[in-house]
Computed example of a mutant assay.
Amino acid sequence: MGTNTRSWDNKALEDEAADLLGHVLLLAHRYDLDLDAAVQRKWRFQLSPSGSAGR
Results as ranks from 00 to 15, higher is better:
A38H: 06
K42I: 00
A37C: 02
Q46W: 05
D32T: 14
D34V: 08
E16V: 04
G54E: 14
P49K: 13
L25M: 15
L20E: 08
R30C: 03
Y31V: 03
S7Q: 13
G54P: 00
T3R: 09
E16K: 09
Q40K: 10
A18H: 04
A12I: 03
W8V: 07
Q40A: 15
A37I: 00
K11D: 06
H23A: 11
L47S: 03
D15L: 09
W8N: 05
D19A: 09
L35T: 11
D15Y: 01
N10A: 07
W8M: 02
D36K: 14
G2R: 13
R44S: 13
D15A: 11
Y31W: 10
L20F: 06
P49H: 13
T3Q: 11
A17E: 01
T5A: 10
H23G: 09
L20Q: 09
D34H: 03
V39D: 06
L33H: 06
Q46M: 01
R41W: 02
D32A: 15
K11Q: 12
D32P: 03
S7M: 14
K11F: 09
A37H: 05
A28C: 03
A18E: 08
D36M: 00
Q40F: 02
T5E: 06
P49R: 15
A38M: 15
L33R: 11
L26P: 00
D34Q: 06
A28W: 00
A28G: 01
D36E: 11
G51C: 04
G22L: 03
L25T: 02
R44C: 10
H23S: 08
G54Q: 15
A53F: 09
W43C: 14
L47Q: 10
G51A: 06
D15V: 05
L47I: 01
R6N: 07
S7N: 12
W43S: 01
T5G: 00
Y31R: 13
G22P: 01
E16R: 14
W8G: 00
P49W: 04
L13H: 08
R41S: 11
G54Y: 10
L25W: 02
R30A: 10
L13T: 10
H23L: 14
L33M: 12
